Structures are given as C-alpha cells and as structure tokens.
Amino acid sequence: MVSLKTNMSAMIAQKYMGDAQADVVDAQSKLSSGSRIVKASDDAAGLQIANRLYAQTRGIDTAQSNANNAYSIAQTAEGALHESTNMLQKLRELALQSANGANTQNDRESIHLEAEMLKDDLDRIALTTTFAGEELFDGYFGKKSFYLGPDANGVSLNLKNMRTDHSEMGGNFVRASDSTDENWSVTESGNELRFDYNDRQGKSEQLDIRLKTGDDIHQVASYINGQQDVMKASVTEDFELQFFASTKLAPEGFEVSGSFANSLAIGDTEPIGLDDLDLSNVGDAQLGIAVVDASLKYVDGHRSEIGGFQNGVSRTIDNLTSMDSNISVAEGSIRDTDYARASTRLVKSQILGQATSALYAQANQNPAAALSLLG
C-alpha cells in the first residue's frame, strides 16, 4: 500500500537508525573510558562486585604502606640493639679481664673507666634511637599496633626500655657477711643450702643443694653453678661468697637458707643493675659478669622478638602483594572494556547506522510515488 499520511517504512528505518546511533555512542564511551561499566545500568551486579573489590585493593595499598613503616621501625630498632649487644660483649670481656688476678689495681681502674664509657654509650643508644622523631628505647614507646590487612587486621610491636638502670638489665644479689680464707672448707654439719624464689609467672620455686664436705670456697661456687642455672655463685678477693639471680628468672629476688647459709651469715638480697657495674675490684667484677650476662639475655631476647616481628611483617607484605595482584585482575575482568569486542561492536553499529540512514532516505521517497499517481 502506498500512503501519504503514514510512512511505515520511514518510521521503521528511523527506529533502527536511532538504535544504531545509540550503540555507536555506547561503544565509543566504553572504548574512551576503558571501562565496560560506565553507568549502573550497564551491569548492576557487576558494578557492586567491582566496587567491593576496588575498596579491598585500596585497603591493601594502605596496608602495604603500614607494613613497610612497621618493618622500617623494627629494622631501625634491631640495628640499634645490634650495637648494644656488641657493647655488652665488650663489657663482659672487661669484667672477665678485671676479675683476673694478674691485673693490678691501676689496671682495674683503667678497665672501670672504659666500662663507664661503654655504659654511657648504651644509655645514649637507648635515648637517641628514634624513628620519625619518636624515641624507641627510652621506655615510653610501649606497645603499638600496625594494621597490615585491608580490613584493619592488626599486629603489635612492643619496644622495651633499654636504659642501663632498667630492672631487667640486672637482678638481685647477696654477699656473705662472714668471709673465709684459703684454709676454710665445708663441714658435714654445714653443707645444706636452699634457695627460695618466685619465677616470672609467680610460681614458688626452690633449689636444694647439698654441698660436698671438704670443698673450699672456690670449689663451693663452682659446684653450685654446676648444679643449676638460676643462681650464679662467685667469690670475692676477700673469700666472700656471693649469689646473683637475674630479674628474668627471679623478679622478686630470692632467699638463702640452710646450715651453710647460716654458717656464713648470708642475709637479704639487694637489687643490682647494669648501671651499678663496678669493675674496680675482683669481687664486683665477678658479680659484674653475671649482671652483664643477664643484660645480654634481655637485649638478645628482645632482638629475637623484633626479628620475629620483622619476619612476620615481611611475609605479610609478600601476601599483600599477591592479594593485590589477584584482586586487581578479578576487578579488571568485571570492570574493564574488552577492546576487541567493543571495537567490533562499534564498527558493526556504524555500518548499521549508515545502512539504515540510506534506507531511511529511500523510504522518504515513497510519498513522491503516491503523488505521481495523481497526475
């Protein structure tokens, strides 16, 4: 039917030409933006999933930054403690040297002066080791949390006080009030020795030692040290027996009892720290060896804690990097434009638009055919 009022062919061509033009615009927007989902109507469910994945990758990026900061703090702290360990090793060498009977009093005074300088250097490290202006070992850093996951999963780093006057850098000691001499020996009626103390968990502990009759005071000290590893026994130049226990093993000190303790008038313990170290005489040098050993265990134990924290952070960084890569790929597979497909669609839409445009022009010529019938 030929009609003047209603041109169905032109209307159909116009509809398809509009659809083709809309497809061209949509394909061009996806190609220019690089995103398959330009607006929510493109893929409502995909947009929601992609946004969740994007939020997770943003969280991972922040977590990686936090982890790198945490690792840097731990690395700075461990480097400082490495130097502290070296100084404590030198202090131990000086204590052993001072305790040697071949040294004169002048030698011991010189050794003591060097030890004092080393203690000052240890305090200097504790007070001047900083990260971003914050002191690490002055006792105020405490425990801080670092969030190393995209969902606020935290780990804690506790940096301890490393000053020489800290209680963990020493322990408690007691020295016999009565001295002995080279002719003294353990009697059969005075060979019982007992130590009572509370361990770090507050549990009551005791050590019972029966000494060997006939041993001199130096043999007694060696025998006590060989029977256990909590109390350290040593002898001064005046043949006075002394005992030391670190704060780590006996935080509240210890009590000495038994017939042997009574025979030498061994009284109450007193605290002693690394800052009290005196290497100017044999007795204090002997005691100083035990004090430095306690300090070394404290420092090296803290180094182990920091090293474990570093290893954990390093593994976390590796995991975050892997997560970031995999999640980004997953987000890209949902959100990103497939350029091959979008380009094909653009060319197809452009060809359809050109074809429908030609058909639309041809359809508009049909009314002219109707007019020709009227003469």
Rank of each mutant, 00 (worst) to 15 (best):
S177G: 08
L296S: 05
S33K: 00
Q97P: 08
I209Y: 01
F146N: 03
N364S: 03
T129I: 06
G142F: 10
L373H: 08
S333H: 02
Y54S: 02
S234W: 13
S314T: 08
E109I: 06
Q89L: 12
L91H: 07
R210H: 09
S177W: 07
T187N: 10
Y140T: 13
G170T: 01
F254S: 08
S110Q: 14
D278V: 14
A13G: 03
S65T: 09
G308W: 06
K144P: 01
D293T: 09
N100P: 09
L352N: 13
S349M: 12
L279A: 01
D61S: 04
T236I: 12
A261K: 07
K297D: 11
K5W: 02
A74F: 00
L122I: 11
D324Q: 11
L277K: 11
I272M: 12
Y298Q: 07
T316L: 09
T130D: 03
S84E: 11
K297W: 01
I224F: 00
Q227Y: 04
K5H: 06
T247V: 08
L47M: 12
G59C: 14
G214A: 09
K212Y: 06
D216S: 02
N69L: 13
F254G: 04
A363G: 15
S29I: 12
N7G: 08
A67V: 04
K15S: 12
M11V: 12
Y16G: 05
I289R: 12
G149D: 13
D199M: 10
K160D: 14
S325A: 12
H112N: 15
Q228K: 07
Q21A: 12
Q105A: 14
L94S: 07
Y223N: 02
I49V: 14
T247R: 11
A44I: 15
T321P: 00
D293F: 08
M162Y: 11
N7H: 10
V174T: 04
A20T: 00
W184G: 15
N106I: 05
T130I: 04
T104Q: 05
M323R: 08
A355N: 13
I217V: 09
Q242S: 09
D178I: 02
L211C: 14
T321D: 06
K39E: 05
K15I: 01
M231V: 07
Y54E: 03
Y360S: 10
M117V: 00
R200D: 08
G214R: 03
R210T: 15
G214P: 02
Q227V: 10
A20Y: 01
S222W: 00
E93T: 13
F173L: 01
A55D: 05
